[in-house]
Design a protein around this nucleic acid. Structure first.
Lengths: 339, 339
DNA sequence: AAAGCTTTTGACACCGGTTTCCTTTTTCGC
DNA sequence: GCGAAAAAGGAAACCGGTGTCAAAAGCTTT
């Protein structure tokens, strides 16, 4: 009576069930060494009281908590959210929760900020999204702090424990093969910014496919962007004003592809009749521009799920895949070249 | 020597400083009753050891933790992420962290799932994003569980403690005034789905502005969508095929506006010459379609920050504002009507 | 019935903080 | 110089769980 209305603790359960705390603890943790009798009895009391173990107390006693962190630099809102959903898929029905932490890639105190964050929150592990997942110092920091980590991205490192990656290079090659198969010969590339592993992989995939078919890639058929809309517009403008106008463009992400759409429109080029465009990411924008953009999509949500599983169930071999296949999403921005 | 490499605890600090735990605790919590002498001494040891208090132990002792939750139903990735950033602005340099929890609005077990989530994580408080922020049962659940909460959205309730809202109605009115000022008379509305407060507010804002100018809104000038791209396309198709074709359309969000673009294009209507379109949200897509979409943007990040402050510093009156102004973002999808 | 196992259970210390309450020291007025 | 009040600091209990280890109970075996 007197202690009404407080959330019940393990002690309350123990008292009501007439057993010790430890026994209740055993029931909670599904310990094998328990008679069915006591188990049933304790479970009844737990149900009656609506008892839920206090996660902070557990975290303290076990000397580890059940918080996963997500470090990201907002490259693409949709991607970040899909990863969050994937992580949630993985931790559903567990006691884990997901803590997010946006960071500023360009901050000079980036590493210190993250260190303070890890010290303060004592996370079980963190997921690191591209592009900051490419920062090796960050991975070392996690190691040093004894914090589990998984890096996501289009990385080339073969570190099965700490990497969940897509296979950008191969996918871009396939996309370019597809263009070539349709008859395109003059295919231009809008590549991503220097220093991004994804930009590198996509470029290499592009060049490899062209070379495999013996097609030249003159400097005028390559332009660099920043992964942003404006830069795609600019890059495409340069490409389309070249002497030998390309009949197709591969853009290293959808935003830049959208910029290229704009550049084509300014020049009265019809898509896909005068110009085919392929993007990368399958972001929402791809479906919402006109004509809908053919692009390469990677299974972000599944990757988020796999990354989380790698942290919380490292023994689970079903989650050991670490290189995920992407697929070409065919919409309406690609056709055979004119004539 | 022997206990090397473990993260230092309050006991280690106490021993090295030659004081009791309690004194160290006093230093951490900036208690007033302490001599400067001891304070300096203890602080030196803390710095030397790189001691950081264990948040789980603190949470246990204080009977409350420092976790804020974000409940959302992914209406719009960009919005969710901006809110996350706003919350991070608010909790920077505090010990709070942000836990995210996507939910499925249509799940029959929605409330139970959230209840379990709150029971398990024992959050300090939660932020609820639209559209699930409109669910009153959810707010009651939080109250019942003793969990602080703030609802965000375009709500009409005047509950300064628990609401952070934008002023959709007034903003839509202004947008429509703007169209009328340019000379438009036949203005159509694509409204959001039944049951969304935001859809309601935006519709009311639209109708109020039309009525204020004595302009009729025949049934053929109204169509309902689901807030999704496809529905905008369909709705606009109906509107544009009506006997009296409108010269301007207000769409209740940007995605549907993008769908309307598509419908206009199918009918060879030029934007803005033949048809002006205004959207709502200022989502990334608005800047990435062609022509760039004039739209109404609301200060999502600031609202996220305000919502978080309401939870963690309820006394702070600078954050008491609860109705945020939106603003018209003028791009290129609006012009005077032809002729 | 006693001895010897195995299974089940509980007492107690501990995780790393905070709170309560009490003792010691300092300050200060007279 | 003394007593009293105020300031400073410490001992022990507590928050709600888990780990260790030993005791109790149940079951064979002889």
């Amino acid at each position: 009576m007197s202690k009404a209305n407080k959330t019940p603790t393990i002690n309350d359960v123990a008292r009501l069930a007439g057993v010790s705390k430890k026994t209740v603890s055993r029931v909670i943790n599904r310990s094998a060494l328990l008679s069915d009798d006591t188990r049933t009895k304790v479970e009844a009391v737990i149900a009656e009281l609506g008892y839920v173990p206090n996660p902070q107390a557990r975290a303290l006693a076990l000397r580890r908590n059940f918080l996963l962190g997500l470090l990201h630099d907002n490259p693409n809102a949709q991607t970040v959210l899909k990863v969050q959903e994937g992580v949630l898929d993985a931790i559903r029905d567990t006691e884990f929760a997901l803590v997010v932490r946006p960071v500023d890639r360009h901050s000079p105190t980036l590493l210190d900020d993250i260190r303070r964050f890890l010290e303060q929150q004592r996370l079980y592990g963190v997921l690191i999204l591209p592009p900051i997942s490419e920062n090796d110092a960050l991975a070392e920091l996690c190691l040093e702090m004894g914090c589990g980590y998984v890096r996501m991205g289009s990385a080339m490192l073969d570190d099965e424990e700490h990497i969940v990656a897509s296979n950008d290079r191969e996918m871009v090659s396939q996309a370019v093969d597809y263009l070539i198969g349709l008859g395109h010969r003059r295919i231009a590339l809008i590549e991503g910014p220097e220093g991004f592993r994804s930009a590198l992989e996509r470029r290499e995939g592009f060049l490899a496919a062209m070379q495999a078919h013996g097609l030249p890639v003159p400097p005028a058929a390559r332009a660099q962007g920043t992964y942003r809309f404006d830069s795609g517009l600019e890059a495409a403008s340069r490409l389309l004003d070249a002497a030998e106008r390309p009949t197709a463009i591969f853009a290293s992400n959808d935003e830049m592809a959208a910029g290229a759409f704009h550049a084509a429109r300014q020049r009265d080029l019809k898509i896909p009749e005068d110009l085919s465009i392929i993007g990368f990411d399958d972001s929402p924008i791809a479906a919402h521009i006109w004509p809908p953009l053919t692009t390469v999509g990677w299974p972000v949500r599944e990757m988020g799920r796999a990354a989380a599983l790698k942290l919380i169930a490292p023994g689970d071999t079903t989650a050991r895949a670490f290189r995920f296949p992407a697929r070409l999403v065919q919409r309406q921005s690609v056709g055979p070249p004119r004539g």
